[in-house]
Computed example of a mutant assay.
Amino acid sequence: MIDFGAQFTKMSNADLGEANALLDGLLLDGETVHAAFKGANNYWAVFADRRLITVTAQGMTGKKREYSTLPYSSLRATSVTTDAKIELWFADLGFAVLGGMSMPYRLRLEFVPDVDVRALERFVVGKIL
């Protein structure tokens, strides 16, 4: 499962064709990619119409990859900053419980300045409201 402390930094726009090839066999029938971003350490964040898919490279060569699905239905809050950062707060993922209550998990994505994070946040918020 995704390491919520992972460094999704310097995320820049990626080619949708490259993202579709990266996710070959993982997308559901009829599911489409809305936006894709590639960052430092070969990390990916792919915003599909039903979920956010993160891809992290592992190992010395980075050829081993971990794919994690974060459904928009688990997204509880978002935050966007003017310096091109988005924070997404996910709950109901079945993880650590504190005092009988599950804790939301924060995923921070830091983009290069030319990424329109406001448009991306509007897309995400449209999936949860």
Rank of each mutant, 00 (worst) to 15 (best):
F37R: 08
F37Q: 02
F37E: 01
F37K: 00
F37V: 01
F37H: 08
K38P: 00
K38Q: 10
K38A: 09
G39V: 02
G39H: 13
G39K: 12
G39P: 10
A40S: 13
A40K: 15
A40E: 15
N41P: 06
N41A: 15
N41D: 12
N41Y: 11
N41I: 09
N42D: 14
N42M: 07
N42G: 06
N42K: 14
N42H: 09
N42A: 09
N42R: 12
Y43R: 14
Y43W: 02
W44V: 00
A45V: 12
A45L: 11
A45D: 07
V46G: 03
F47H: 10
F47R: 05
F47N: 01
F47I: 06
A48G: 05
A48T: 15
D49Y: 02
D49H: 10
D49T: 10
D49I: 05
D49N: 14
R50E: 01
R51M: 14
L52Q: 01
L52Y: 00
L52C: 06
L52S: 05
I53T: 06
I53A: 00
I53L: 10
T54E: 04
T54I: 02
T54C: 04
V55L: 04
V55Y: 00
V55F: 03
V55M: 00
V55C: 08
V55S: 03
T56R: 12
T56C: 06
T56I: 10
T56Y: 02
T56M: 03
A57K: 03
A57W: 07
A57D: 01
Q58K: 15
Q58A: 09
Q58T: 12
Q58H: 10
G59P: 04
G59Q: 05
G59R: 09
G59M: 11
G59D: 03
G59L: 13
G59A: 03
M60V: 13
T61W: 14
T61I: 04
T61S: 14
T61H: 07
G62H: 06
G62P: 09
G62V: 10
G62A: 10
K63Y: 02
K63S: 13
K63W: 12
K63R: 13
K64F: 07
K64M: 06
K64H: 12
K64Y: 10
R65Q: 15
R65C: 11
R65G: 04
E66L: 15
E66K: 15
E66P: 01
E66M: 11
Y67I: 04
Y67T: 13
Y67M: 07
Y67S: 13
S68C: 06
S68W: 05
